[in-house]
Amino acid sequence: MSPQDKVSRREFLTKTSLAASTAVAGAATGQVGAQEAEEYVQSDYSVRAKALVAVLTKKNLINPAEIDEVIEFYETKVGPHIGARLVARSWVDPEFRERLLSDANAAATELGIERRRDLAAVANTPQVHNLVVCTLCSCYPWAILGLPPTWYKDAPYRARAVIDPRGVLKEFGTELDEGVEVRVWDSTAEVRYVVIPERPQGTDGMTDGQLQDLVTRDSMIGVEKLKSLV
């Protein structure tokens, strides 16, 4: 018998999630093994997610082929390698950098990058460090970074990035000089922010392609600086 069968139909939607969290709470007190509780939670969501897709498909509200296309696109096509193209180009082409910082939408279009949302780029310098967060939900530049990591979407990072950015950065292993100004960008509206990290030392003479490989996702969120190669 699946866990939902014990639950009255009327309260199904609330109870399934609450039952899952109860199982996790049980794990904390030793009543249920942690792994068992985790498997319970995942199987519960799995049952509901499959039911959702089945119902939408049966009612012709979605095209199942589109489900596969969406998953493939976000698993294999879009990711931080796209943002890295903007960053690397900005390091080798000062005029592109100016265009990127004044109109990131046009700069992205210039590199053939497709997007649905508006973009803004903010640059780190020796005096300024930028950090991006969405305290209200999970706004993130999908088009150039892919889907956000779990920590970006969960409450702890969102809660602390605005009130204790230096503490968060330290936990990510990023130490800033006391004199550096931290700018936190809370993506509360329609614009998606990307940080342009500083070009690491020891990269003179590297090609645009080699530079792209150095640019990390976390450096474009602003939680880390790129390491010097010297």
Partner: peptide, 26 residues
């Protein structure tokens, strides 16, 4: 702050991919 998985895939579980994709495809 949780332990961070540097190799975290876009979707850790199949159900996450299904929910996300259904939201996009509907």
């Amino acid at each position: 702050l949780p332990v961070r998985d540097p190799d975290e895939p876009p979707f850790k579980y199949e159900w996450e991919a299904l929910v996300f994709a259904a939201s996009q495809a509907f």
